[in-house]
Simulated assay, not measured.
Amino acid sequence: MNQVRIVTDSTADIPAELRESLGIELVPLKVHFGMETYRDQIDLETAEFFEKLVASPELPTTSQPSPVEFLETFKRLTDASDDPVVSIHLSSGMSGTYQSAQLAKTMLDEGADVTVIDSKSASYGFGMLVVAAAKAARSGQSKEQIIALVERMRREMKLYFLVDTLEFLQKGGRIGKAAALVGSLLNIKPILSISDAGIVYSVDKVRGQKKAMTRIIELLKHDLSERPIDIAIAYAESIDNAKPLHDLMQEHFTVESARYTRIGAVIGTHTGPGVVAVFACPQQVSG
């Protein structure tokens, strides 16, 4: 049986050493600071990105990979063997990345076995799906089994982002200046999630970081059954910002596996450097 090959894009925020150890192929988005362009996770590391973000008077812009970039990756994999390819990407509600991959698929030679999946999620919310898919591929599972696994995890995944400041939401046009000013004065911490349609929305607003983390635990208790869960805690600048949330998750849930990861440039552009996120999924074969 051929081994399924897994492809994703840089917004999955999978730690580089984990991605490389599992043989996950990466197609990067691009980040533009004025006239300077960087390939996310390749030319621009996460720490460097947040340094530039804080220093920049204007938000950077981001752009999806072109169909040609996806085509090059798909052709390299399918020309080398008959292995099926499963390509999992950032929500189509946030980016044209999924559409670029789909278009590239139509440009392949007949017989090339490529499946493109819209994760309807972002950051390690689908990075966890990609990692699970890669582990399943390594264990010899079929394309159909891997697709079923990804779809099941996508339905069961729960995630919340805690934004430290309203500044970057305001710069990106998601809230007005008056709302950002009042929110900052009152120490308001927005809690964000992603809808079933794959779009970011505001779940709640809480005063103070500690209360906001407690509210996230309440939300997850409502979301999740008593099954053991796998979690990832993501942070932007400092892991110290993420440790309290990690500790609360360990205290209130049966956590079978946990890891830290970094919020990448695309999500970080809109949330800013103080963002913390939790991704939780009932245990399957994710890691």
Rank of each mutant, 00 (worst) to 15 (best):
N2P: 15
Q3S: 15
V4A: 04
I6Q: 12
I6V: 12
T8M: 05
T8K: 08
S10G: 04
S10L: 05
S10F: 05
T11D: 00
A12D: 04
D13S: 03
D13A: 08
I14T: 04
P15N: 06
P15W: 12
A16G: 06
L18D: 13
L18Q: 14
E20C: 09
E20S: 12
E20K: 13
S21Y: 04
L22V: 08
L22P: 00
I24K: 07
I24R: 12
E25F: 13
E25I: 15
E25S: 15
E25K: 13
L26A: 09
V27N: 06
V27L: 09
P28Q: 13
P28I: 11
L29K: 11
L29P: 10
K30V: 06
K30G: 01
V31C: 11
V31N: 06
V31E: 00
H32F: 05
F33A: 05
G34H: 06
M35A: 15
E36C: 02
R39F: 14
D40P: 02
D40R: 08
Q41L: 09
I42C: 06
I42Q: 15
D43R: 12
E45P: 09
A47H: 13
A47L: 10
E48C: 00
F50D: 01
E51N: 15
K52C: 01
L53H: 02
A55L: 01
S56C: 01
E58A: 06
E58C: 03
L59W: 06
P60E: 01
T62N: 01
T62Y: 00
S63G: 09
Q64L: 08
Q64C: 02
P65M: 07
P65D: 02
S66M: 00
P67E: 06
